[in-house]
Amino acid sequence: MIKSKKIAGLLFAFTLGTASVFAQTQQLPQQQQQAVEVDVSDEELSKFAEAYQEIRMVNQKAQQEMAQKVEESGFDIQRFNEIHQASLDPNADVEVTEEEKTKHEEVVAEIEGMQGEFQEEMEEAISKNDLDVERYEKIAMALQTDTELQQRLQQLMQG
């Protein structure tokens, strides 16, 4: 059983791909997602964009390494995700053999062991761009609901 939902969330973000700029940031539970207003200067948004790009690279590397661990164990990525989701949802109806269950637990333990390194690399990318993790997350949360801020970020990243 996975000890951290954050790891599970990251695992699925990696294996299923990223759909938006905010996929790599900590997601709040749905009921807590609400408009977060943050005053962000162009300079700070530029730092955020730089950190975000570096975090994306860390995530791509992490995705490859985690997928490699899954495949090395003999699992198909899709089957691993199916079993993993079932391990997180007690109501899921997925047939899993004892061998698959054991192998899944071993792979999850390996992936959990890798998380610290990736987390450090992400935090380093943030601090290297003169932001702290809390501020980065605050901007990321604001980006989830602030369309003007999203447009400013898109322009920065395209320019």
Rank of each mutant, 00 (worst) to 15 (best):
I7Y: 14
E134H: 02
Q155M: 09
Q154A: 15
Q31H: 12
F14M: 13
S46Q: 04
A142M: 01
A140L: 08
T97I: 02
I55K: 03
A49W: 02
V21P: 11
N59L: 10
E50V: 07
G17S: 06
S20H: 11
V108E: 00
P29N: 03
S46M: 06
D130G: 04
D146F: 02
I7V: 15
G9M: 12
D39N: 06
A125S: 04
T15D: 05
A62I: 02
M114I: 11
N81D: 02
I7C: 07
L156K: 06
G17P: 10
Q158C: 13
A19F: 14
N91S: 13
I126L: 01
Q150H: 01
S127T: 09
Q144N: 15
A109H: 12
L10D: 06
E110K: 04
L28P: 02
D132N: 05
A51D: 00
D76S: 07
A140T: 01
S41W: 04
K138M: 06
V133C: 04
Q64G: 15
F80I: 01
E148G: 07
N91K: 14
L10Y: 14
A13F: 08
L28V: 05
T145Y: 11
Y52A: 04
A140C: 10
D146V: 03
Q31D: 07
E71S: 09
Q144P: 07
L16Q: 11
I7R: 09
A92D: 01
V108Q: 03
K103L: 03
